[in-house]
Amino acid sequence: METPRTFLADGDHAARRIGFGAMQLPTSPGAARDASTAVLRRAVALGVPLVDTAHLYGWGANEELVAEALHPWPSEVMVATKVGVVRDAATGDWTYDGRPESLRRQVDEGLRRLRVEQIALLQLHRVDPATPLADQVGALDELRREGKIARIGLSEVSVEQLQVARDVADVASVQNRYSVFDREYEPVLAACEAAGVAFLPWRPVAGAASGSAAATAVAAIGREVGATPAQVALAWLLAHSAALVPIPGTKQVAHLEENVAAGQVTLTGDHLRRLDALNDLHDPGPS
Results as ranks from 00 to 15, higher is better:
3 T>R: 06
7 F>T: 08
16 R>A: 02
17 R>G: 00
17 R>Q: 01
19 G>W: 07
22 A>I: 11
22 A>H: 05
25 L>Q: 01
27 T>V: 15
33 R>Q: 14
35 A>M: 06
35 A>K: 08
39 V>D: 03
40 L>M: 04
40 L>N: 04
50 L>E: 04
55 H>C: 07
55 H>P: 07
57 Y>L: 11
61 A>W: 04
64 E>D: 12
65 L>A: 01
68 E>W: 07
80 A>V: 07
82 K>L: 14
83 V>K: 00
84 G>D: 09
86 V>S: 06
94 W>Q: 13
97 D>T: 09
98 G>H: 05
99 R>L: 11
101 E>M: 03
107 V>R: 01
114 L>V: 11
118 Q>S: 15
119 I>A: 01
119 I>L: 13
133 L>G: 11
134 A>P: 03
139 A>Y: 08
140 L>E: 08
144 R>K: 10
147 G>A: 08
150 A>V: 09
153 G>Y: 03
155 S>L: 09
167 D>A: 14
167 D>T: 11
168 V>A: 02
170 D>T: 15
174 V>E: 04
185 Y>H: 15
188 V>S: 03
195 A>D: 07
196 G>A: 07
201 P>F: 04
202 W>K: 02
210 S>D: 14
228 T>A: 11
233 A>V: 12
234 L>Y: 00
236 W>I: 00
239 A>I: 00
240 H>W: 02
242 A>C: 02
253 V>E: 02
253 V>G: 04
256 L>T: 10
261 A>E: 11
264 Q>P: 01
265 V>Q: 00
265 V>P: 00
269 G>P: 07
272 L>T: 12
275 L>H: 08
281 L>I: 12
282 H>I: 10
286 P>A: 14
